[in-house]
């Protein structure tokens, strides 16, 4: 019988300790915590204030390197296809048309020789790993801090960054095919001339092989 009351008293005592803590939090919860970032000097001083953010009116600040929505500055893109190849979920689709000559420069000086007929990034498939931004050589593909782009139709999450119209695409394709044809013709012509010129040569000269000239051989040894 004594134990029965002792148990009750002990339970009340320990829960009373808990009540005092929550009451203390309750009394201090009249000041609102402002959403501040982790390095501000007063970040932790609002410890016992209200922590609920009134979301659309107040937002948590995101850092510069935050990995949210992708954005591609298509004028700087050299269509090297690295982002599409390293993406783990294959959410980037690129269709490239080679140009016959350099047609422009990106903002950091690299020459552009390939047109992007199609450059789609499907943010519904993206896993936000950030690998595509790491490998982009011209830094045209970046992750912005926009995380609030909900829509009701999932196909709207497939963002199109290429800015060539249908007519332009057809025109560039035609130009490239023309260029290829001309190269073929030129090659056939030179082959024919070489063959014509070679026929009166002697036996032993025909046996010599023509070795290709090596201009540069990269070394694969790491710096140790």
């Amino acid at each position: 019988m004594k134990k029965y009351f002792a148990n009750i008293i002990q339970a009340v005592k320990t829960t009373w300790k808990g009540f005092t803590i929550t009451f203390r939090h309750f009394c201090k919860a009249f000041s609102r915590q402002k959403p501040v970032f982790v390095a501000e000097s007063h970040y932790f001083e609002q410890n016992t204030g209200k922590v609920t953010l009134q979301y659309p009116k107040e937002k948590l600040p995101t850092p510069e390197i935050g990995r949210y929505k992708l954005h591609n500055e298509i004028d700087d893109c050299i269509v090297c296809d690295k982002c599409a190849k390293i993406c783990p979920v294959n959410c980037i689709e690129i269709e490239a048309i080679k140009a016959t000559q350099e047609f422009g420069k990106t903002s950091d000086g690299t020459s552009k020789r390939i047109y992007a007929a199609k450059f789609d990034i499907d943010m519904a498939k993206c896993c936000f790993c950030g690998l595509c931004t790491t490998v982009c050589p011209t830094e045209c593909l970046i992750m912005t801090d926009e995380y609030d782009y909900a829509v009701t139709d999932i196909s709207l999450h497939n963002f199109h960054f290429a800015n060539m119209s249908e007519a332009e695409i057809a025109e560039k394709k035609a130009l490239y095919e023309q260029y290829l044809k001309e190269k073929e013709e030129a090659k056939k012509q030179t082959n024919k001339e070489v063959a014509d010129a070679e026929t009166p040569k002697s036996e032993n000269e025909l046996n010599t092989e023509v070795k290709p000239k090596i201009t540069f051989k990269p070394k694969f040894k790491p710096k140790s």
Binding site: A39, I65, R67, G130
Partner: peptide, 25 residues
């Protein structure tokens, strides 16, 4: 988020270390 850019699925690190140094923040 300040170290690698994401909160939950962090994808941090590279072979041989990390991808960037700890910033001041």
């Amino acid at each position: 988020e300040e170290v690698c850019g994401a909160r939950l699925t962090t994808n941090m690190g590279r072979i041989g270390g990390l991808e960037r140094d700890f910033s001041e923040k």
